[in-house]
Simulated assay, not measured.
Amino acid sequence: MELRQLYYFVKVAKKEHVTQAAEELHVAQSAVSRQIHQLEEELGVKLFVQKGRNLQLTQVGQLFLKRAEAILADLERAVVEIHEFLDPEKGEIRLGFPHSLGISLIPQVVAAFRKLYPNVKFRFKQGMYPSLIRDMIKGEIDLAFISPFPGDHEFVCGEVLLTEELYAILPPGHPLSDESAIDLKQLEHETFVLFSEGYSLRPIVWEACQRAGFTPNIGFEGEETDTIRGLVAAGMGVSLLPEMALHYTGPLQPAKVRINNPQVTRTIGLIRRTNEKLPLVAKVFHGFLIRYFNDRRHQ
C-alpha cells in the first residue's frame, strides 16, 4: 500500500467523483482510477459503489476513510514537527476561528505574533461552531478560537480568553437609536435580522430575547456579520452583535445601543485536542495568546 493511494482515496471519497478528484490532484483520471482499483484489490474489498454519476463509499469504505484520514493527519504533523525541530520559528500554525472574529480580532493577534516571529506561517480555517469542533477532533487544525466556549468536552480542552458584550444595533433614525442604553424588551415588536441556524450567535440572541420575555420575530437571516450589519443599517430590522463585529467605517452604519436588561454576552475561548501535545510552534502561539488576552484584561 502506497501513500499516494491513500491520498487519492481520500480525495475521491470527499469529491465522490473520480474526474473532480483528478482535477484537484492535477493528475489524469485514469491514474486515480488505477490507484483506487489497486487499493481495493490489495484490501480485498470494494471501497466505492456507483450511484448515478457519483461514487459512494461502502460501509467498509467509510471505516477505511476514518483510518486513512488519521494516518495522513499524523504524517502531516510529523513533517511539521521535523521542520519545527530544524527551526521552531519557521513552522506553520493551523488556526480555526468563526467568521465573526475574522474582522478584527484574528488580524490583530496574528499581526502582533508575527512581529515577534516573522517567519511563522498560518493556515486559517473559518467555520461554524460544530465544524470547528469537528476539525479539531479530526486533527485538521491545531488551535481554534471558538464561541461560546464549550466547557467540559471529551475531546477538546482550553481556556476562556474573554467575555464580550453584545449590543443592540438599530437602523439610523430609529426611535431608540439615540438612547445610551435600552432594555431588550423594548425591541419586542421589532423585526429581527439573525444569523442562520448553526451559527453560535443565533442561540445567544434567541435565549436573551426569551429571558426578556418574548420570542423574536425573524424577518431576515444571514451568514456574515457584514450582512447582518448591512441589513440593519438599510432599515430591514434590528439585531444584536458583539462589539468587535461593529468595527466598520463604511457609509452605511447601524446605530449601536447598549443593552441594560438582560445583559447579553458571549464567551470566546481557545481550544486544542485533549491529551495531545501541541506542535512546538503552536505551543509558542498558545502561550502568546494567553499572555496577550491576560494583558488586555488588566489594561
Rank of each mutant, 00 (worst) to 15 (best):
I106N: 07
Q38V: 00
L161I: 11
N54C: 03
S147K: 07
E224Y: 11
S30D: 01
H17R: 02
Y129E: 12
N260A: 14
E221F: 04
V32I: 02
L75F: 09
R77N: 14
S200K: 05
R123V: 08
F9T: 02
Q35D: 03
F293L: 09
Q263Y: 06
A112T: 13
V27P: 01
Q210E: 14
R134E: 09
E41M: 10
L43E: 04
E23V: 11
I259E: 14
P171S: 13
N217W: 01
H247Q: 12
Q29C: 01
D87V: 02
L252C: 05
T265F: 06
K121N: 12
E40C: 07
G151I: 09
A234H: 12
L201E: 10
T163V: 15
V27M: 05
G96L: 07
E197Q: 12
T249W: 11
Q5I: 00
E154C: 01
A245E: 09
Q253M: 12
R94P: 10
P171Y: 04
V238P: 09
T163E: 15
K14L: 12
A282F: 06
V45L: 06
K121M: 14
F293I: 10
F122Q: 07
E2T: 03
R229C: 02
Q50H: 14
G173P: 02
L176Y: 06
A234R: 14
H189R: 09
V18K: 06
Q20M: 03
R272C: 11
S177F: 08
H189C: 01
A21G: 06
R53P: 00
P251T: 13
A111W: 15
P279L: 05
I268R: 14
I271Q: 06
R291P: 04
E197M: 06
V10N: 00
M136H: 05
A168K: 03
F97L: 10
T215S: 14
I271N: 08
I218Y: 05
Y292D: 04
K14W: 05
I146V: 10
F195Q: 02
Y167N: 11
E207S: 12
I82H: 08
P171H: 10
S196T: 12
Y129T: 05
L43T: 02
M136N: 08
L187M: 10
P216E: 07
E84I: 02
L6N: 00
L143I: 13
T215I: 13
Q186I: 05
M244H: 15
G127L: 04
A234M: 10
R229I: 03
S239H: 07
G96K: 08
E197V: 13
L86G: 05
G151A: 10
V284F: 13
Q108W: 01
E92D: 09
I36W: 00
I290P: 01
F48K: 11
E23W: 04
L3V: 00
V156R: 04
I93L: 13
A233L: 11
L75A: 09
A21Q: 05
L116Q: 14
I204K: 13
P148N: 09
K66E: 10
I133M: 07
